[in-house]
């Protein structure tokens, strides 16, 4: 078995044994019903007492063949409203960038917690989309309104 498969199986085991409150993460099913450990769906709860609260934001996590040498790609739905999310939904976060802070020992748990942190603390220095970045910098009222609308859309039951 390759390091990639061994590691992903262990990540799944560890997640099932213990994971942060309010999150979920599971491998997707392939057409034939078996699990594809390289494609996961996950949910990131917005932190309490932030604009993002009371909602769980869906993401997909794609592990490349070179994982854990290379980082997984994390995506929100297309056109997700956040200054550091590309129009395609791809998250721009230094720990998910091979050229920046990605390290093979970073676990799935650390990744989803990193994404949760990013929600309410956008990074000024790496804008990834026009609407959310401009609103965040120039029209905070509009930004907050948009974020709250989005939270309603993904409201947790």
């Amino acid at each position: 078995m390759s390091l990639n498969q061994i590691r992903l199986q262990e990540e799944r085991k560890q997640w099932r044994k213990d994971h942060p409150f309010g999150f979920y993460a599971k491998p997707m099913k392939t057409a034939d019903g078996s699990l594809d450990l390289r494609q996961w769906t996950a949910g990131i709860p917005g932190k309490q007492n932030t604009l993002w609260a009371n909602a769980v934001y869906p993401i997909t996590i794609e592990f490349p063949e070179e994982y854990p040498s290379k980082p997984p790609k994390v995506r929100f739905p297309a056109n997700f409203f956040h200054p550091n999310v590309y129009p395609s939904g791809t998250v721009c976060l230094s720990i998910l960038n091979e050229e920046q802070d990605w390290r093979p020992a970073i676990t799935l748990k650390q990744i989803v917690l990193g994404v949760q942190d990013l929600l309410d603390t956008p990074n000024d220095e790496s804008p990834a989309q026009e609407p959310a970045y401009r609103a965040y910098k120039k029209d905070r009222a509009l930004y907050e309104k948009k974020v709250k609308e989005q939270a309603k859309k993904y409201a947790s039951a």
């Binding site: 390091l3 061994i6 590691r7 262990e10 990540e11 560890q14 093979p104 020992a105």
Partner: peptide, 8 residues
Amino acid sequence: LKDPLSLN
């Protein structure tokens, strides 16, 4: 006691 790369 687990390798941080494979988690084994």
